[in-house]
Design a protein around this nucleic acid. Structure first.
Lengths: 412, 412
DNA sequence: GTTATAAATTTGACAGACAAATTAAATAGG
DNA sequence: CCTATTTAATTTGTCTGTCAAATTTATAAC
């Protein structure tokens, strides 16, 4: 599977989303399709060609889109179609993933194409906001230098981090990478970097990346589940991220699947995460690999190798994890009834053991009305895609601001 | 707590719902407020008085609303406000709840006021569509006679039943009251009754009743959980019922909270319902009430009395049920983060035992970020409110059809 | 060249919504 | 009782977004 970001080939339309104004719908359509002729926009969105001309010429005047140089060869006769595309230079955004071990940053142009990237391997745990800021600045300047740009060229920055984040308020309620609760990280970074900053839970942003650059082309509704240090989930309903009724993300890792079950790092018992996360597997690894003193990551590798080699204890560890994961997914299926669930994240390198248990248990434990079974896919993206999701969030923020504010010129 | 349906006192506005056209927003506002002056509509919805006048006079001309006779005494000086209200006689709808033991029907006028009701005590299990139809017709004719109306006066019928229902398609995937799967009950009834029929899961309709006639006045987002024969759940997000991404309802009763747990009537193990539903409690009652040979309902009463009297086994049964219920609710809280959860249904007469366990367990097992705790309320409505929810669904169907089709007069 | 074809634009019209001006219906005070 | 004041509701004229139809533009086929 190749990188879904390079080049914007023709795509399926996003569905008849009859929401929003014509201007934003047309803009979204151009972004989704990459390149599209006016007449196709009119047909896809059921908007008259006259209106499309009016709106696109406005967007061109505002510098947001442009006519593509490539001449369309789709028509044999008649006036050829002129494709429209987002103007790459209109804006540049940065997207970051703050991870426990690595911080990844990408710079994207307005079309969503990657200009440069930077990765800093530095453990990040219980850090202060200043530390985070310094880290971001290092990564940012590195990527800017590569792309031959300066900070003032950046229109917005998106940041994804694990934990409980209220994206609308830019508030981090809790995160393993931060040293205290209730940090208004969004505002904090925005003030320091003198640039709009949006933040969100990392799993949400991976879902956003899937929406913009991945399966979102075909699917209006799907769920992304991530397994890394913890468990994460991002839910896309009707082409939009669902963030819970009060703005905070959805919590999957702390779903209880066993009363008085295993102890979780959150202090509660029976959380799914307490059976699936790195630390959960490692604390059982002792039994299978008693003499092993290697680092956590390698240790997990070893455990996996042992399981593959037939070590019954190691197998049992993955076996239970897979079963419980399946149950957790089944609970989600029963609630949201999604057509597609995407499993993503580092730990899925261990999926060959998961595969059987997980999908089996999921199916066995969900109320499937047998007409449309849930599809389970595994996507092994690297950290770059997470960062791209963050950048997509930043792009979304920019365009939202532009499209919303422009017509609001009502001065009494 | 008195019946929430009688009279439409002043209510909190539904929030700045900037969705939909002005006409539907104004209509919704009038329905929500019961009686409201034009100037208040303008202020609440941020629509100009000119537009409110234009639209309301159109609605009056179409016979949907009228000026209320009661003269407003809110203003001391100036021209008095003229309140608008839905025109009661515009439409009459019927709403039904199909239950295992009783079928309840109400007739409502366009304002949502009850005209008459009927209840038929007849066990309903594995019935055919014809049997259902006959039952509905009996109840309907009885209520019509009382209200001095005939079938042709009915504009729409809403039907709520337990099970898995796709409301949009009118399809019953499975229901304990029906004898087979995949019955297009909506179409079936509609053809027979020669009147628009909408159907939905009963818990969804109770949530709709709460939205229209209950807490919906103050709350935009809430969750209704019912315990009767089975467990049900209805989710209201942004003043709308959420029915899952593919239109079927949300399944709460079959959430797994114990791997390889108790056997559920669905055939799976560890379902919440297998610990909470009537049959789940009764199968344990054997231990506490060995000599009891009474009917199920009385038997459950006896079990409850025993628990109150101090019977340790009986207490233990409710104790566990309460704990597991709390865990199930916590899982929902972690996913939706609602501000309010309403517990409803027959079994909640046993709530004095539930109360402590349930809310305790819910709080102990949900990721509460401590700023806004979830409120848990118990509403003990009778079957009538369920039926009113069904009628509300029918009313919604009518008005949706009226408001949507009217402006769609584009004939090329 | 001319014709056919299809894309894009221009034109004129219409509908939804608004601000401002006007009218309507009440009270307060002399 | 009459007038000023106050507030609600309506009317008027305008603006904006959108569309259908007519027109212009740009290409291929002949």
């Amino acid at each position: 599977m190749n990188d879904p970001c390079d080049g914007y080939g023709p795509r399926a339309p996003l569905g008849n989303v009859n929401e929003g104004t014509a201007i934003s719908r047309i803009f979204q359509q151009i972004r989704a399709e990459g390149q599209i002729a006016r007449i196709d926009i009119a047909r896809d969105l059921m908007i008259s060609p006259a209106t499309v001309t009016a709106i696109t010429s406005d967007l061109i005047a505002r510098g947001l889109i442009e006519e593509a140089a490539a001449i369309s060869t789709e028509t044999l006769r008649g006036r050829p179609r002129v494709k429209l595309q987002l103007r790459p230079n209109a804006h540049v955004v940065a997207g970051l993933k703050l991870g426990a071990n690595v911080t990844t940053l990408v710079l994207l142009d307005f079309q969503g194409r990657q200009l440069s990237e930077a990765a800093i391997s530095q453990p990040l745990q219980n850090a202060g906001a200043d530390e985070i800021l310094a880290l971001i600045e290092r990564a940012l300047d590195s990527a800017l230098t590569q792309a031959d740009l300066s900070r003032s060229d950046i229109s917005a920055i998106g940041v994804g981090l694990p934990g409980f984040v209220n994206a609308a308020e830019g508030m981090v309620h809790w995160s393993p990478v931060l040293d205290s609760r209730m940090i208004p990280l969004g505002a904090r970074l925005q003030d320091a970097l003198k640039c709009p900053v949006v933040i969100d839970n990392d799993a949400n942003l991976l879902a956003l990346a899937e929406l913009w650059f991945g399966v979102g082309r075909e699917q209006r509704d799907f769920i992304v589940v991530t397994i890394e240090q913890g468990l994460g989930m991002g839910i896309v309903i009707a082409n939009r991220l669902y963030r819970g009724t009060r703005g905070r993300g959805v919590e999957f890792g702390h779903m209880k699947i066993q009363p008085d079950g295993a102890l979780c790092r959150c202090g509660q018992r029976g959380c799914l995460e307490a059976y699936l996360a790195d630390y959960a597997l490692l604390r059982e690894a002792e039994m299978a690999l008693p003499a092993d003193t290697s680092q956590d990551h390698d240790r997990l590798e070893n455990l996996f190798d042992e399981a593959k080699a037939g070590n019954l204890i190691a197998r049992s560890i993955f076996h239970r994890a897979g079963r419980l994961f399946g149950i957790g997914l089944a609970n989600i299926v029963n609630i949201f009834d999604p057509a597609l669930i995407i499993l993503s994240g580092e730990q899925l390198q261990y999926d060959y053991l998961y595969d059987i248990e997980v999908s089996e248990m999921m199916e066995a434990n969900s109320i499937d009305l047998s007409d449309r079974p849930v599809e389970l896919r595994v996507h092994k993206w690297n950290d770059q895609l997470w960062a791209k999701g963050a950048a997509a969030f930043a792009l979304d923020h920019i365009t939202g601001a532009i499209l919303d504010t422009a017509p609001q010129v009502r001065v009494p």
